[in-house]
Amino acid sequence: MSARGASNAPRGSQLPAQEKVSNELFTLTYGAMVRQLLHDFETVEEVNAELDAMGARIGSRLVDDFLANAQGVRCADFKSAADSVARVGFRSLLGVTARVGAWSETSDAGSGPSACSIYFEENPITDFVELPRGLEELSYCNVLCGVIRGALEQIGMHVTVVVVKDMLKGADGNELRLTLKEHAAETYPFKDDD
């Protein structure tokens, strides 16, 4: 495990040089999409669920792109995967820094922690956003939960991700809670050799 310090450039050399687009295009497009969802669906819960589902689809495709570009990122167990999501994923894809913390106590013998939180203050999808009255239930950042869930699903980890703290709702920071449900062991197709 690398030291937590020097968070400005955690494993900096591994950050891929990715093509960038303006954050404003991203944030306004997302906002307009959320508005369209609110218009199309009847309840806010449905919108939250749809945002999560969209995120999961994005995540399951984004993970390939991410692993292909970021060399040497370790995702062997939940701890290193969560670490990679926060330190490298947030930085290279969204251009913001995030931290991992609040690891749960190790549950089973030797299997490592099964829950942690990702903290971040800057959130590129909420520039210009203010939740109007009556939409307090809307989980605007649910798409991020979906992305993390979808991405980890592709590498065999079934996790649940929920928004614990949301700066749009007056919290002093954003916090996403990741809980590992199941880690499918990788099985190799040995029979292919026959």
């Binding site: 960038k20 687009v21 994005i58």
Partner: peptide
């Protein structure tokens, strides 16, 4: 500030 083109394209 910028985000990666991948994030935007997938969105």
């Amino acid at each position: 500030s910028e985000v990666s083109l991948s994030a935007m394209s997938f969105l």
